[in-house]
Simulated assay, not measured.
Amino acid sequence: MQLYNNLSAEERAKLIEEAGKDRLTISFYQYAKIGNPEIFRNHLFIHWNELDVLGRIYVAHEGINAQLSVPADNFHAFKAHLDSISFLENVRLNIAVEQDNFSFLKLKVKVRKKILADGLNDATFDVTNKGEHVNAAKFNELIEDPNTVLVDMRNHYESEIGHFKNAITPDVDTFRDSLSIIEEDLKEHKEDKNLVMYCTGGIRCEKASAYYKHKGFKNVFQLEGGIINYVRQVEENALENKFIGKNFVFDERRAERISDDVIARCHQCGKPCDTHVNCANEACHLLFIQCEECAEKMNNCCSTDCMDIIALPYEEQKALRKGKGVSNLIFKKGRSEVLKFKE
């Protein structure tokens, strides 16, 4: 029984191109008590592999967090399978604003200790005592209230290219870093302000809202379905869009264009730009913002050192990175010392 991918990303991309069929990029999450995540993981892989589902899915005792791509023709079969699982019946599915048939090229279903790396001890507070979920219309109303503090629960490299107007955007590398910083910065307003939070699809706010209520914040709200669902509701209900720029996403697309505003700059020359790339040197792979001119000048690299490395024969490049893993430093982005332009 196959419980692994038997095609490379390149082979899968070729098959998708040859098929010529549209795919849907979808994300969802659900907190639930899963007794045996390993068995559940295998169950999902077997069924979703048959439906040609591709993506990155995390399963843990506390639930599931999924970002995936499914052929449009198989969507109803995929939805039927979700509904056959008691705690996933009618789960909210966030369908991407901008579709790309190549958003995911492998099916990865992994068992983790947690579906979100939040660094919290869930046993110390009631994770079910969450903030109030609000739709796009209510969210727009709340963030215009002078008694509201709007907080972006994402990381610096996400908010840099796009965020809601007047939002607090913590300068952090990880979600866990933001929790204590926000609590400290807003400690004087636990009772007299509305704490309104948002993230990409809602999962970070789901845990953060319960944490802040535990910490004494009285009026806690979270954007239902995150930015992805907000944009869809804005379009369907002709609401004012208060998000500026791009929404960062964790797949091959890297971002969805939400408004025409370009609020970021190239990390190499400072020109207005909001295109994320990874350094062409596989031993580096640094995630940063690069304009077309710098991409041509730097041969898609973040530094002259990396340019020198990719100019070497492939076997020499491979030998240089042997035994060395790419760490989370790839997300340093504008903080990296190799980049000339930093905010």
Rank of each mutant, 00 (worst) to 15 (best):
P37S: 09
V91I: 11
F102R: 08
G334E: 14
G323F: 14
E89G: 01
H189E: 11
Q290G: 04
A13W: 12
I16G: 06
W48T: 00
D83Y: 09
H61M: 08
A208E: 11
F250M: 10
Q233V: 12
E282N: 11
A32V: 04
D118L: 04
C266F: 01
G270D: 00
P313M: 03
K33C: 01
N121L: 13
E252S: 07
K165L: 10
R176Y: 13
A66L: 02
Y31V: 00
G119L: 12
A19Y: 12
E282K: 14
L105N: 08
E144T: 05
E132S: 09
A13R: 15
V59T: 04
K193H: 11
I182Q: 03
N101W: 10
V326A: 01
T174K: 09
K190I: 04
N42K: 15
D171E: 14
D260F: 01
K130Q: 12
I310F: 05
I244C: 12
K14M: 13
R254W: 07
A255R: 00
N194R: 05
N42H: 14
L186M: 06
H47V: 00
L150R: 11
S86A: 04
R154D: 14
F288M: 05
S69P: 03
T124E: 15
R23C: 10
G225I: 05
G119I: 13
F288Y: 14
I203W: 05
M197Y: 08
R56H: 06
N278V: 00
E144V: 01
G201A: 15
K342F: 03
P37F: 09
N65A: 02
F217Q: 07
A319N: 08
K190P: 06
A319F: 07
A9Y: 07
T169L: 11
V134F: 09
N166V: 05
D305V: 06
I64Q: 01
I181H: 05
A72C: 04
L320I: 08
V134I: 11
S336G: 08
E141F: 07
L93A: 03
Y230C: 07
A137K: 15
A319E: 15
A66Q: 01
K138Y: 13
D274R: 01
G245H: 12
E62I: 00
E236Q: 15
E11M: 06
E62Y: 00
F125I: 08
E191T: 12
E183A: 14
V249I: 15
G225Y: 01
R154G: 13
E184Q: 12
A77K: 09
F104N: 03
S159D: 09
S180C: 08
I203N: 07
V338F: 03
E17N: 11
D52K: 14
A80M: 10
I115P: 02
F125V: 09
R254N: 07
Q99K: 06
N129Q: 02
D118S: 10
